[in-house]
Design a protein around this nucleic acid. Sequence first.
RNA 1: GGCCCCAUCGUCUAGCCAGGUCCAGGACGCCAGGUUUUCAUCCUGGAAACCGGGGUUCGAAUCCCCGUGGGGUCACCA
Length: 559
Amino acid sequence: MTKHVDVVTRFAPSPTGNLHIGGARTALFCWAFARRMGGHFLLRLEDTDRARSSEASAEAILRDLAWMGIDWDEGPTLAYEGRTIGGDPRGVAPFEQSARLDLYNAEIERLLEAGKAYYDFTSSEQLDVMRKEAQAKKENFRFHPADGEIPSLGAQRQRAAREPGVVRLRAPEESVTVVDEVLGEVSFGAGEVDDLVIRKADGYPTYHFAVVVDDERMGVTHVLRGQEHLMNTPKHVMIQRVLGYRTPAYAHMPLIFNDKGGKMSKRERDQTARLAVKEAGMSGSPIPGVIPDDVFAGWLGDKARQLEHSQLEALAAHMRLSLPEVSVDDFRRAGYLPGVVANFIALLGWTPSKNADGSDREKFDMDFLAKDFDIARIGKSNARFDRAKLASFNSDALGAMSDEAFAAAWRAWCEDYEPETAARLSAGDMAMLAGAVKPRVKTFAEARGVIGFVFLDDEAIEFDEKAVEKVLRKGEPSGLELLGDFRATLEGLERFEPEAIEGAVKGYCEAKGIGMGKIAQPIRVAITGTTVSPPLGVTLAAVGKRGTLARIKRCVESV
RNA sequence: GGCCCCAUCGUCUAGCCAGGUCCAGGACGCCAGGUUUUCAUCCUGGAAACCGGGGUUCGAAUCCCCGUGGGGUCACCA
């Protein structure tokens, strides 16, 4: 007995890789719709492809969803930040299709007995030949033998006992019209669907069959999915009709493309890396310990080949390369905030309601989405993923955080993805730097670049030639002279903290009757080697009194 | 190629369903100024779109048709 819930949505990924950004949006919308309607959001693992599915991938997907703030009411459980997500409140488990074979087989048996499905022993090779023949004749291939060509069930069973075969559903000759919640009425003519395979030779159900059976058994009321599934709908409706199931409401969402107008795919990342490797003129693997030379060579020469996720990450890190992000984990690793990612992808193909004053709304959080989401405001046309706009949203979100919150989040991110930084900077250092770093970065990953001078040895600072000429040599008095003079002031500073340092600089300028730039720029060059850095106070404080004095001394002496 | 979907600034989009208030609004990006000890932030301003052609109507971005363009899909993958 399953308890009745008004609305049940589901997200049903196949655990064959990371959670793709498109999948994340589907999950987000399913989640939001269920929340909005006070229903349940269910998570199911479609692992009927035995060769490609993995448990590691399943867990990674669960974690990615949880990170985004998408929690599921029903489905596999995940312990996340002290709580457990998932469960089986209505008694519809299991949630892995590989554990539901008996169920599918029972239904298939029912169909076989009723003559609505039949065993087929055509080999893949034979099918290939048939497809090619049809193509040569410019005809559409449709597997749909005449009634007379299908042996009796008894004969089918006899043969099935000896050799593996698939089970196909006998496609009824009828047209299908679905009322899509996004697209409206969509009709498919009779004879479009062929006798599709519902059970593979390995005994596993095909996607189409498993989805239909599970959605029925799990009481799914609304199917929100990408538009790439639109042509699957007549197949699913057909299976539902033959099985005597109800048809859930469908809502097909527009697709998400990359900035070049193509499909956002993991291949993009390999392509970017491959291009960089070729430009660098590399032939052997730069990190043979992670990527063996033969693997590297094969990958380099074959555009279709992809490296393992971890290998690609290592290569990118080694070459200090930033790869285009395509999966949720990529964005997390790059230092985007989960709320921002969710906010941004929600805007791809959907529009929130207006603000109370009638103005357009763009920024919102998960709570708002859960209250405001509406299928009626899902758009129909595909959207490009604009990374620049995402970056801007993230930048704004970081800027809106308090220094304390930023420092904590930055530190947490570093601990996961940049442990050297977390080790070298104390929590206090990061809190002190927060205000200066915040407005200068779009992601956490950019922070290191802003404060790179902190990590350099005092003797390793390279003084930029142009900067030296402009701010140290020119002027009367020259920057170099002021620098030597000001160093003494700094030396006498008791508390080497941002405010005190700023005060000292200001006091010095007033006493000397010179503008701030006259001394600020020479100091920058002495400390960082360039004319660009965060405000002087934090810049010097981050380097420390000893380092500051040493760098100024070295600058004065060596330039 | 068959089938199906879509079409507003470079990009995401509001407006379209219930035609007039739209010489089309917002955001990102871009350009130009301003604030600032550098950079960044921030502030102000600007350029920038209804794919084309027919209808319907007093009137069309909004409704209809055709064309064009873009996309999806045609597996024992999901």
